[in-house]
């Protein structure tokens, strides 16, 4: 990968990776750090990376960097989730998008990641498997479970709205 290809990769994928990470961890500063970290990794390994595979490498690096960060902050995240759950019922939902965002936030980490890669980036089951280290069947099962959860969640909130 040349310097020009790397810089083109920044233009093409920095926003997508940032949205993917931000949607997963819901922390702008951490999302920004993770994006910078994975681009730094890509720059260091640019000699080994084919320009056509840059996007896949980038999301793979971003995913694993994010998982590491989540594990480090697991305790804090659980506290945040508990606080979120306490206040969730009293929230006012204005539209489907907001309800859906809340539902996505409540998905298990792996289900949220695969469904975001599927919907945001349009990845195939196989590509998602390469990014997350899962096989295609597992990816498919997680996506189906995530959709069922989202469907039931927004269905439940439908009455609230």
């Amino acid at each position: 990968m040349t310097t020009a290809q790397y810089n083109q990769c920044v233009d093409d994928h920095a926003d997508g990776v940032y949205r993917f990470i931000l949607k997963n961890i819901r922390d702008e500063d951490k999302a920004r750090d993770i994006v910078q970290d994975c681009f730094e990794k890509m720059w260091v390994k640019r000699a080994e990376i084919n320009g056509e595979k840059a996007r896949s490498y980038l999301f793979t690096a971003a995913y694993h960097t994010m998982i590491d960060a989540i594990r480090k902050d697991r305790h804090q995240t659980e506290l945040d989730e508990a606080a979120f759950n306490r206040h969730a019922d009293s929230r006012q939902y204005s539209d489907l998008k907001e309800v859906l965002n809340q539902a996505v936030a409540r998905l298990p980490d792996i289900q949220r990641s695969v469904v975001l890669l599927r919907d945001y980036e349009g990845y195939s089951y196989q590509e998602i498997g390469e990014v997350t280290g899962l096989n295609e069947s597992q990816v498919k099962v997680y996506i189906y479970r995530a959709r069922t959860f989202l469907k039931n969640y927004i269905g439940k909130m439908d009455a609230v709205i």
């Binding site: 926003d15 997508g16 940032y18 920004r32 859906l100 919907d119 959709r147 927004i154």
Partner: peptide, 14 residues
């Protein structure tokens, strides 16, 4: 179920 397809918020940029 059709509404569970997520759409990225393109206004969110790095």
């Amino acid at each position: 179920m059709k509404k569970t397809v997520l759409r990225p918020d393109l206004s969110v940029k790095f």
